[in-house]
Computed example of a mutant assay.
Amino acid sequence: MAAFQHTLRSPALFAGIGVHTGAYVRVSVRPAAPDAGVVFVRTDVRDADNRVPVSGEAVCRTQLGTVITNAAGVTVSTIEHLMAAFAMLGVDNAVVELDGPEMPIMDGSSAPFVRVLDRAGLRPQETPRRFIEILETVEVVDGDKRAALKPADGFEVAFEIRFGSAAIGRQAIDMPMDEAAFRAELADCRTFGFAHEVEALRAMGLARGGSMDNCIVVDGDRVLNPEGLRRPDEFVRHKALDAIGDLYVLGGPILGRFEGELAGHALNNALVRALLARPDAWRVRTLVEDLKEAV
């Protein structure tokens, strides 16, 4: 784990369609100053404040994706896959400029974002990185859904899902999570949806850009994508990827264990807000302090 903050060495440029809006969007991820955090900038908005800083409180909607807003009501949708890449590659500070309302879905995973960030490279900064150390268990429950953060020496992710479709069934993962594990185990796992829900979603203004190019489509007990799955348990691995991105709105990497059971974006953000409401359950820690103590 890096002890100091990092930003990009050079801009990372990419473009694609939004999975829900279907709009083509161009993106430039640029370096930012220490302690700036991640700020999205809607370059297509000129009559209002177009800067949307990421925070737990900025999340305004969580239906099939994470949406953030600012005081002017300007929003940016579907940030979670890029945020997961930022979290696990160690990008603390970045300005994300986009000329539309929604981040491109790319192939439905974080892998394309990892590739463009790798090309841009990272630059270390002189400010210590602030970790969020979990001191006491914080848990949120909604019926049979549950999400929790618990104390642990490093970052761990456990997730379980259960679906009636035989294509998914019950899947669970439980693993220590660092950059190497993210790259090898989670980054390429894609989002998924069900064929019978597509018409209803599109009637609600969602999934207009969704296709088998950017989503695993399940029809009954079958996966419709001709290429099949990238991993037998790609579904639960993607849910873990989503959770990592949703947790990174806290503004720093977590030293603790995340557990999700049937959870989604809404419960993930409920957990973020529950943690923020419990200042006794966590503290900000820097590894620089640990290094000084060791000396």
Rank of each mutant, 00 (worst) to 15 (best):
P112L: 04
V284F: 11
L262C: 09
H265A: 10
R146A: 11
P232N: 10
L250C: 01
A266H: 11
R208T: 01
A32G: 04
N50T: 05
H20Y: 05
G210I: 11
F113W: 06
L135Q: 08
G252M: 05
G164N: 13
G90L: 04
T21C: 01
G108E: 07
L89N: 07
G16T: 09
I244A: 06
L8V: 03
A294E: 09
A277S: 12
G169D: 05
R208G: 00
V67L: 09
I105R: 13
I216F: 14
L206T: 09
M106G: 09
G108R: 08
G264T: 03
K150S: 15
V19S: 00
G56L: 13
R115N: 09
E102M: 04
E102Y: 10
A72D: 15
N70D: 12
G260R: 04
A48H: 14
D221N: 15
P128T: 13
V27H: 10
I68G: 13
L201G: 08
T127R: 13
Q63N: 14
A12K: 04
F194M: 07
S77C: 13
K150C: 02
F113N: 05
M212S: 12
T191Q: 09
E102L: 02
T286L: 03
A32L: 04
G256E: 00
A274P: 01
V223A: 09
R46P: 00
E199N: 03
F131V: 10
R285N: 00
R119M: 05
R202F: 10
I254F: 10
A281N: 06
V39L: 04
G164P: 02
Q5V: 03
T127L: 00
G264H: 06
I134L: 00
A270L: 07
L276Y: 03
C189S: 15
R170D: 00
P101T: 11
V41N: 03
I173K: 08
D49Q: 08
G18E: 01
